[in-house]
Design a protein around this nucleic acid. Sequence first.
DNA 1: TAACGATCCTGATAGC
DNA 2: TGCTATCAGGATCGTT
Length: 344
Amino acid sequence: MPELPEVETVRAGLARRVLGRTVAEVEVRHPRATRRQPGGAAELAARLRGRTFTAAVRRGKYLWLTVGEDDDGRSQTPPSEALLAHLGMSGQMLVQEPEGARRAESETVAVGEHLAPAGERHLDLTATLPPTLVRDVPATTAHLRVRLAFTDGGELWFVDQRTFGHLMAVDTVPTGDGAPGGYGSDAAVLPEPVAHIARDLLDPALDRADLVRRTRARRTEVKRALLDQSLVSGVGNIYADEALWRARLHGTRRTDLLRPAQLRDLFDAATEVMTEALAAGGTSFDALYVDVDGAAGYFARSLAVYGRVGRPCPRCGATLRREEFMNRSSFSCPRCQRRPPVRA
DNA sequence: TAACGATCCTGATAGC
DNA sequence: TGCTATCAGGATCGTT
C-alpha cells in the first residue's frame, strides 16, 4: 500500500523521467480514475493537452506534477495548475519510453523502480524485488486506467488494480504560510483539493510542537489521529502500526490523555520508520502479494509487527496479535503495547 | 463542530 | 470444478 515512502519514491522517479515533457494526448480508460475531476475525463484531457510538466511535488500521500508552461511555452511562476494524483491502495505510475529512446533497455518501467541513488544507473527491478512482486510489474494494460502520451513518443501510465486512486487536473492555491506546498518544489502553492491535507512528518516546514498540541486537543484514539491526514499526513495503516510499536503505545490510547513527551516519541518513531523505509526505496508497491505469497523476507527487513500475527515480538518475544480497528487490521505486541482500561 | 462508521472497489484465497 | 464469502484499506460523506 503506497504510504509516504512509497509515494516519495514515485515522486522522485517522476522528477527524473517526465519533467520537461509535453503532453500530446490523454486517454482515460476507466471512469473511476477521474471520478473527482470536475468535468470528467474530457476536462482532464483538455487541461493537460499541450502542457509541459515542470516539477514533481509531494505532500503526504498526494503527489502532483505542475504544468508551469502554457501552450505558448511561457513559464508561469508560481505554477497555477497541476496534475494531482493519489495512488490509493494499488496505484502505480509507469513510464513507457519510445522505441530506442533514452533507455535502450527500456520497456514499461515502474516510476518507483529507482532504488539506485540519483545519478546511478537504474536498478533492474527484477533483481531487487522478490519474484512475487516482479510478477506485478506489468507489461500489460490489464489495469491501465489513464494513459498520457508525450510529444516525444513516450507515455505515462496510471495503473490501478483496485481503483481507489485517482487523477485530476486542478488549479493551485497559495499555502498561506509562505512555505513550499510540498517536497520537490519551492513554490508556495498546492493543488486546491490538497489544501486541507496537513504537512507530513518529513516536511521541514512542519511545526512539530504545534502538531503535539493539536493532537492532544483531539479527544480520540491515537491510531485514528495518526491516520487523520488533516492532522498529519503520510501515515497509513502499515507505518501507524510500526510507529505505535516503536513508541510502545496501543492504538486505542486516548490522545488527550497522553503526555506531550509520549506524542513526541510517537511522531519521532513514525518519522524514523518512514525515513528507513524511504532509504530502502519504499516497503513495497503492493503489500497485498506479500501476505498472499509469504514473501516475508522482503518486509521483515523493516517491519516489526505489521502482518506478523503469531510471530514473536522482535523486542520482547511475546506473540504478536491482530485486532480489528476502524474496520482495519491492527498488529501489536500484547506485552509492549498494553491496552488501556475501558472507560465507562 | 468533532467524532465516527459506512462505503467505494478488485482480485486472491479459503471453504464448501 | 465452480460458487460464495472474506479480506485488504485511503479518503470521503453521512450520521450522531
